[in-house]
Write a protein that binds this DNA or RNA. Sequence first.
DNA 1: GACAAAATGTTCGATTTTGTGAATTATTAC
DNA 2: GTAATAATTCACAAAATCGAACATTTTGTC
Lengths: 262, 262
Amino acid sequence: MTSLGSSDVLPAAARLRKIRQALQRTPGVSVGAMARQLRVSEMTIRRDLEKLQQVADVRRTHGGAVLAERTVFEFSYLERQRARQTEKKAIAQAARQMIGEGQRIILDTGTTTLHLARLLKDVRNLTVITPSLAVASELQYAPEVSVVLLGGVIHRGSPDLTGPLTEHCLEVFSADWAFQGAEAIGPDGSVYNTDLQLAQVDRKMREKAERTCLLADSEKFGRTALIRGGTLKDFDILITDKNAPRALSALARKMSCRVMTV
Amino acid sequence: MTSLGSSDVLPAAARLRKIRQALQRTPGVSVGAMARQLRVSEMTIRRDLEKLQQVADVRRTHGGAVLAERTVFEFSYLERQRARQTEKKAIAQAARQMIGEGQRIILDTGTTTLHLARLLKDVRNLTVITPSLAVASELQYAPEVSVVLLGGVIHRGSPDLTGPLTEHCLEVFSADWAFQGAEAIGPDGSVYNTDLQLAQVDRKMREKAERTCLLADSEKFGRTALIRGGTLKDFDILITDKNAPRALSALARKMSCRVMTV
DNA sequence: GACAAAATGTTCGATTTTGTGAATTATTAC
DNA sequence: GTAATAATTCACAAAATCGAACATTTTGTC
């Protein structure tokens, strides 16, 4: 492949082109390989790569070079659980029914609320307030929906913003609904989060919404987690699935929280 | 010495990409398989995975690694930024020199500031406050940098947050530096933006920073744009490139704005 | 051909990356 | 629960790579 044409050294410009081509084919080139292939010293290749880095989308690395990354902005996170997708979708569907045109709603972080976000793309004149980059991303192109992203600190590997700034942002809003998930719901009706900051943000959200709704599939019941962020009393409605424990209805009623089962 | 075989050994960075690609194809990779496939020791793969976990959407597992779920914001505006790349990079480099460890800086929206963001990944103990999803995305995996995303409304097709909420968020901060771009700089030293909200947010940023710096390549001079957001008086330093007009220096001096040319 | 300028090659100490084996920790099987 | 097995981490030595300085070759110009 390299041996076509003259086996002599190439002019500099041609060498740069060859390096660039090689980069296009493979995920990266090594200084040594290029030097051998183009019959020049390694130092020359290094200087070439330095040059290419200046003028082209080539990035120098130890041992060689790679092509610069494409420019797509992505936030990534580890999906908590793929489990219970069906239940979560059904719960989201039920929540969707409660939202009307022109409303302002607060959508919390979580997989269930993310499902809900997907169902909101065609609600007319809707305002969605959220600390979740995933929710924001999901709705960014919905023409009828305006998305307000709350401020906050970005945590590595997590798709949501939390912290004092997030609470501070919420301060200025008032919404028709707040939809939240939970990590666990104890047998006494306590609602748990994994994280203190998250719990505080959640509390503030409930303050700022006229009505509040908790989305929790049946797996969440009877467990606990690190932070007790509130109780069922704090929610107007709880939406869950058919596998939720029997005792739940009575418990919720005592705490003046309506239960919807899907 | 280099003439030995080993023609298929990739530089480290390329290996990281291969691993990431493999991860994209299959739900997970094992340390052993990767080591065999890439002809390196398992220890090397472990170190690679550790690195990937730090800087990318990869999560380590016992025995291998998996890909974290991604949230993608895609914006098309980057296409036109090809122009003046070299100048913008050089300007960003100069700005980088002014930032020290442990500082808090505000980074505005724009392609030049995005270039600057790329140079900040290894600044220790840095806090970056920004309304730009692109900047936030760029720095989300920098282990030493904490990123505060300001709240605001997401506009379709634009990777940044603006509006009253953004200003409200800025209220609580105070920073060492504010770095901003501009759409145009008039012959009288007026600084122009394309958008009123952006201009207002910019003004607030300057209020909240001890020192302010304007990043503008020479193409911006002598033009105007929709909104007059401020003047060179509002900036302590202007960084530009060699092609900037001669008159600029005198003009800037009159407005007590230091000029750096790269 | 003679000269200067640019490009390339060489050498070498410093730095980064990699491999190895022992000690430690997690996972699995029982 | 415990033992057996696999994976991980740690520390250190070996190997590869880097870049600067200087030597050498090539190129362009008169």
